[in-house]
């Protein structure tokens, strides 16, 4: 399995210096392969999140294409792309990503509820234990701290077990011990055959990486 971005760019139409647009990502090509953990680092505002959203099928590039194996993601209809993302690409965004009306356990099982099929309850129990949130299973998101919410989002993606895992600053709200736990979990997922991309502006993740990319001013150096 391979997730491949070919010369993707993203422009936002707003006044930026002399130009009438701002180019957040400039002609980036990138390949994520199964079995590898890639770390993408760079300063805030360098275009990491925009790039992650584009390769995750969430944001249409202004130019270029994104392929999952031979499938051109943005050539798909919304319903087909949504279904593909649900089954094959897991995105852990920055910030809160909990449905407030569902408990922690329900949030973790949520991807499996969208398109039917068996709920991955055993995996959910396992990842909750690994990430240290098993005692919060019946808690509501409003009762959790930022770090607990982040671990819940990570557990949700790992439970769904997609082929590609894209994590945006996954250790941002975590202490050192939890950072190690989470990065170890991503490393295990990569070893299990997943393609994992960890976007971070910190250096902690680099020790776990098979590939390190650096992003600056919208391009990968």
């Amino acid at each position: 399995m391979q997730l491949r971005a070919e010369n993707i760019s993203r422009r936002y139409f707003r006044k930026h210096g002399e130009a009438n647009f701002f180019e957040a990502v400039r002609s980036v090509s990138l390949t994520l392969e199964s079995g590898k953990l890639t770390v993408l680092n760079g300063k805030s505002g360098s275009g990491k999140t925009t790039l992650l959203n584009m390769i995750g099928g969430l944001l249409n590039p202004s130019e270029g294409k994104v392929f999952l194996d031979e499938t051109d993601l943005y050539a798909l209809e919304d319903k087909d792309l949504s279904r593909l993302r649900s089954k094959r690409i897991g995105v852990i965004p920055q910030g809160r990503s909990a449905v407030d009306t569902l408990s922690v356990y329900e949030n973790i099982l949520l991807p499996g509820m969208l398109y039917g099929g068996t709920l991955r309850t055993e995996e959910a129990e396992n990842w909750m234990t690994v990430l240290g949130i098993s005692d919060l299973r019946n808690a509501m998101p409003a009762e959790l701290s930022g770090g607990e919410l982040r671990r819940m989002a990570i557990a949700r993606t790992l439970t769904a077990s997609p082929e590609v895992i894209l994590a945006d600053e996954p250790t941002g709200d975590l202490d050192n011990e939890n950072t190690r736990t989470v990065l170890t979990a991503f490393q295990q997922a990569a070893k299990a055959g997943k393609a994992v991309l960890v976007v971070s502006h910190e250096t902690d993740a680099e020790a776990y990486a098979d590939q390190i990319l650096h992003m600056s001013h919208g391009t990968i150096e």
Binding site: L58, D78, K79, L81, S82, R83, L84, R85, S86, K87, V91, P93, R96, S97, A98, V99, D100, T101, L110, P111, L114, Y115, R156, A160
Partner: peptide, 16 residues
Amino acid sequence: RRELAVYRLLGMSRKM
């Protein structure tokens, strides 16, 4: 907005 963005993130289509 946030709640539905999560559903969208997890693969819910616009129609769904």
